[in-house]
Design a protein around this nucleic acid. Structure first.
Lengths: 192, 192
DNA sequence: CTCGATTGTCTAGCAGTGCTAGGGTCGAAT
DNA sequence: ATTCGACCCTAGCACTGCTAGACAATCGAG
């Protein structure tokens, strides 16, 4: 028994190593630099080993995305918890979201920009993704305003944050005005 | 003289053919399907011919993006012109933007999602891109609200539209609520 | 009208990609 | 001690973007 358990532990450890390495490489040089050969070399195994853990590169991206979703959900809840009052909570939430995207561009790409083979807005959406949306909903629901479904409001607010995050990082928006844009967004969208 | 002019005309025509073919292929099967071989085969030339017109695939994407930007600017202006009053103009603008993104997903990707090697928010930003932003600014500037710079307001509104467009198309947002989300966005952001 | 030169195009090939088939090796169970 | 099976690696496939060099067609000069 114990030998089998040891093997499973080692396997799980190697899987974590793969994901951590892929993520590190992606953050350093972008996802284009994450090739199966390079990744295999860094973990000091041959390429086929990757395919005994994941169906392919897409699934590796998807796994990193799920990791990221869990982290983001935690970051959002922490920021919301540290703020007093609905309005301050929303501001903190928005800053935390944009901050996460800016600090973890590769992970953010894995979550929303690249094809990680993940389902969305469906029954079989992975739990971490639903939970990240839930983390937004918790703070945004209370400022949706009368007659506006919290879910709908959260979708719109989320879309705005996503747009700011991607356009800023792609160099489409000047970075220096980020804070003013955030304040404008919160001022207008959040009903006190 | 005339022979040289004829050659230039033919060259320009072939360049248009390349772009139209690339765009068509991308809309039909996605940009991943636009390989230099397939593209060359469709225009009935060999691959190196592509490189006598463009530096590489990236530049082809960039050229399609510029085409798209010009079309989008025209569509936005047409929609704004057909509406009466600032508020109706903004609503029409938002619908036109999202409609363009939904109807021309590959072109929209070329403009904002893929790397077309284009500069943004800088001095050397290509004219069509600046003009598309200007088309937004024309209608959005009048509803920015007191004390809010029109440019900043336009950036935020644009980011929100971009977020809605990309998340909807990626299956992250349920398509059936698109109109309600648009109305909510306009209601909150536009100062009458 | 002929003959170099220039222009244009194609064939063939390079290095790199994601992914997989097959053979060996090494450890575990009998 | 021996068999067996899990594990991993080498080698290779079909594809990618891109380019060098050979070849043919066209042009301008004599």
């Amino acid at each position: 028994m114990s030998v089998q358990e040891r093997k499973e532990r080692e396997r799980a450890g190697r899987e974590r190593l793969i994901l951590a390495t892929a993520r590190e490489l992606a953050e350093q040089q972008g996802w284009d630099a994450v090739t199966t050969r390079r990744l295999a070399e860094r973990i000091e195994y041959s390429q086929p080993v990757l395919y005994s853990h994941f169906r392919g590169k897409r699934e590796i991206i998807g796994a990193v995305a799920l990791e990221g979703a869990a982290e983001m959900a935690a970051a959002l809840r922490a920021a919301a918890r540290a703020a007093d009052g609905p309005r301050a909570r929303v501001t903190a939430l928005a800053r935390a979201y944009l901050d996460f995207a800016a600090r973890n561009p590769a992970v953010y790409d894995a979550m929303f920009q690249l094809d990680g083979g993940l389902a969305f807005a469906k029954e079989d959406t992975p739990e971490p993704l639903k939970d990240a949306f839930a983390a937004l909903l918790e703070s945004l629901g209370e400022v949706a305003g009368d007659g506006v479904p919290p879910g709908l409001f959260t979708e719109v607010f989320w879309a705005a944050l996503h747009g700011l995050a991607t356009l800023t990082r792609a160099g489409r928006l000047p970075p220096e005005d980020a804070e003013r844009r955030t304040r404008l967004l919160v001022d207008r969208l959040a009903m006190v």
